[in-house]
Design a protein around this nucleic acid. Structure first.
Lengths: 359, 359
DNA sequence: CTGAAAGCGCTTACAG
DNA sequence: CTGAAAGCGCTTACAG
């Protein structure tokens, strides 16, 4: 099954050297004469030499491939940034000769199996996971295996690990601030299942934002939905049937926000003028929604690159606890954030007043 | 660098067998006693055996990994179906123990290099490419290398190859038919650069649709744009400044259609009632545009699965010329296709009349 | 039906 | 500075 490719052996014979010498020359061992290194490199180029990956891996024991574990229920709508993340990961990995593998799993159990397999089979030399749970079994597993990994998101863990995240708590606090600044006092939150760390932290940010602004927390105004447009639509429908409906809605992701917009329009109201909506992710398609969606934008292009660099940091021996990065999201105001229409109180300008019990 | 995993050697010692026997037992050689096969399998399970990928690959010469070459300029907007395609590919590949690798390339030249590397390095055992050019150098390269590959799209080629495609020509012909049925006679086409096979065939379908309906081809009504919302916007702006602007616009992809909608609204017109728009792809976000986008939907979830199956067909020795599949797209009517507002002719009902020169 | 041995293409102590 | 040799963990003719 030879591919007719030039091997080290071919180079060695061509040059009258031993294959070991050729190998060391190619790998930059310092004890090789510059002249022979040059000859080896020239011959390699001339003969179109390609190192056999499998052989290399078998003797060194390390695979220059990183796996990205796809989050479940990926669809064009629920994961529009996957392509961008993969691009950043793949291109940055490639700069040091690594390749990128992607794996889809069918269940949480299967996911653990895949991780175990990818590592113990020698298929990959590092793993990247996204969207961790608050308590995520994948993390202790990879720690036990000794597999270098970086988590896209944070999570509770005994031992420290490498992660890259955007501060969702801060982002939602800012969103609340922004809405309060626009005169809103009944602000709802459409979240996703709280086993996800990102869902919890965004909810925490929402609550914290209320508190800072002296607004009381009303559980009626919090809905937990599927991470989808349909989920956002159902949740918003609930909110709009409330006796005192919200004047503004925060959506846990832009995908969910799409459904929020749909439900608002279906109720005969205008997102923006009638009910403010702020999403999260800052996805490009928010420009094209009806009306264009205001959102908290995260630096997505950056994420893939940085995560790949973090993988290399770990490979180069960095302590995982030193390999972390927290980015911030920034408000992109489009057309769905607007002044509150029906302020509950006359003193519309004193929005920073302390909490009062008439609310 | 051992991972402390059970090897065949460990199983062999555990059972008092030779490793060759263990190997044959695991690979289902018929000349192994059923009893010893059972013992081997049991021991493998018990010891948590994982075959070492690299060793396997080194001795058999085949890699059970398929590479998907990402199309260039992938972004969340221009490639929203990438995630779906990868999912179908990945899951179906996995059923036979294969993994999926993705690679991003920076130029056409780099792309050829990557293909050469992936194959000659032994990293992958098959390759999948998308969106071929009319004359695509990657195809003869892979043929020369002897690498099994399937193309997502068609292309001109001396030798036959395996491909999966959706009939874009037929789809655009249907779109024209649909619009003509709605009374439109000035129908524009916003396409993309014609070196892409898909761009050419969709344009061909558009022209063919005109012809079938006795409409003359007006080069003014054809714009070539970047495959992006901005491209569609610019092209539409051009069309709207025409002396006799179109009453309907066909967009080569939904992404381009987003820009078409934007430009129409910017001109103070309503997509749908004032100017019909039909996209292509049937992406989910079309539900959320302003207004919801009518589009030709292609069976995307199916594509990844089928392409993976085709890879296995090739691996199993099928002749590439027998490994082809052509799917059809279907109209999903949302809110941007509507009857023509300003028919050029009084006889609005006789839309199938033969071409006439007053047009 | 099973064992012993060679080989896949690299890497890396160990000599000299 | 370079060569010779062992080894990574499998697979597969070849004997018996």
């Amino acid at each position: 099954m030879s591919k007719g490719q030039a091997s080290q052996k071919a180079i060695a014979e061509h040059l009258g050297l031993a294959v070991g010498t050729v190998s060391r020359a190619m790998n930059g061992y310092p004890d090789i004469a510059k002249s022979t290194r040059d000859r080896v490199m020239a011959a390699a180029r001339e003969l179109g030499y390609r190192p056999n990956n499998a052989a290399r891996r078998l003797s060194t024991g390390v695979s220059e491939v990183a796996a990205y574990i796809m989050p479940e229920q990926t669809s064009s709508l629920s994961e529009p940034f996957i392509a961008e993340l993969l691009k950043g990961l793949g291109e940055t990995l490639r700069k040091r000769g690594w390749d990128l593998m992607v794996t889809h799993t069918t269940s949480a159990q299967d996911e653990l199996e895949q991780i175990d397999r990818l590592w113990n089979t020698g298929a990959v030399g590092a793993i990247v996971i996204s969207r961790p749970l608050k308590k995520d079994p994948r993390i202790p597993l990879m720690q036990k295996l000794g597999c270098p990994f970086v988590v896209h998101g944070r999570s509770a863990s005994e031992a420290p690990f490498a992660w890259y995240d955007v501060d969702g708590q801060d982002a939602f606090m800012s969103s609340v601030n922004h809405l309060v600044g626009l005169g809103h006092r009944r602000i709802a939150f459409v979240g996703s299942p709280l086993q996800y760390e990102f869902a919890q932290s965004r909810l925490d940010g929402y609550k914290q934002g209320l508190k800072i602004n002296g607004l009381s927390y009303d559980p009626e105004l919090v809905q937990i939905a599927d991470i989808s447009d349909a989920g956002g639509e159902r949740a918003t429908h609930q909110l709009l049937t409330l006796e005192a409906p919200p004047t503004a809605i925060l959506a846990v992701t832009d995908t969910v926000a799409l459904g929020v917009l749909t439900a608002i329009r279906a109720a005969g109201l205008r997102p923006g003028p009638d009910i403010s909506v702020i999403g999260y992710d800052g996805l490009q398609f928010g420009v094209h929604t009806n009306p264009p969606l205001t959102s908290m934008e995260q630096p997505r292009a950056h994420a893939g690159r940085r995560i790949a660099e973090m993988v290399f940091n770990l490979i180069d021996g960095a302590d995982p606890k030193d390999v972390t990065e927290l980015q911030r999201a920034h408000l992109v105001s489009r057309a769905t954030d607007a002044p509150a229409k029906h302020p509950n109180k006359p003193e519309i300008n004193s929005v920073r007043e302390k909490q009062n019990d008439t609310d």
